[in-house]
Amino acid sequence: MSGGSYYVPDQSRFPIFMAFSLFLLVMGASSTINNLDDPNSNSAYILYLGFASLFLTLFFWFRQVIKEHLAGLDSNQLKQSYVYGMAWFIFSEVMFFAAFFGALFYVRTLAVPWLAGEGSKGAAITAIELWPAFESTWPVITTPDNGVEYELAEKSMAWPGWDHALKWLPMWNTIVLLSSSVTVHFAHLGLKSGNRKKFNVLLGVTVFLALIFVGLQAAEYYEAYAHYGLTLNSGIYGSTFFMLTGFHGFHVMMGGIMLAIMLARSVFAGHFEDHDHFGFEAASWYWHFVDVVWVMLFLFVYIL
């Protein structure tokens, strides 16, 4: 907080454009989802329009911010505001994941055992009258109604034992994602020591690893749907599995896109200095966050 004058940006069209894009996006998404059964529905075009205008707005907004920064308009105070802002944004993302992890812990430790008749609530009528055959296990690939409303899966995604470990995709995914956290860290060190080449190469490797991760995840989903009969519709195990890994996979894509943009900025525009590169740093924080979430996922969704 030095004594100089403050910087307040001029009026800007970007925010209201972005709000309107979000409006188009969610109106389009809602109508599309409500008309999934109707092949003649045109709602998806609103959704596409929303996406397009959102990306355009974001592009020009970020371009403006970068231009201002390169013109030297950003005070140290504003830079610090970006740092705090990104940190709190990541905290909000942690809480978003917490909702889904909370759901997982709740069904694993309480709901499923109760449905099978355990504990003080297990005397509930559901376990005795409605679904007496249901047993509490995890991963639970049966459902209480035994496949009436929800389809039963044949196999879960859980740890298959050491004999099959090498063919187990989540293991490879873990290795890929953990390595990418290491490469992005060394890319950062390279940038800090002024070694642009090292930065570009290692960041490129990171983006490549992100692509591999998404590819492996897609292969895993294909495996689940095509060979295991494990779908969104196969009861609570399928629900939590796809919700957590899918939401995480979406975040990997976001983080990967951020890092790819940083790479493009560095390679094509020569952005970032050894002491001045918060755009990259924010993206790398996000990447480490995505990585930590994966470790939690690996533990609680796959291993335990």
Partner: peptide, 11 residues
């Protein structure tokens, strides 16, 4: 999904 539906193991 069956997060909030007991028939699928949710609650």
């Amino acid at each position: 999904t069956s997060f909030f539906n007991a028939a699928g193991g949710g609650d």
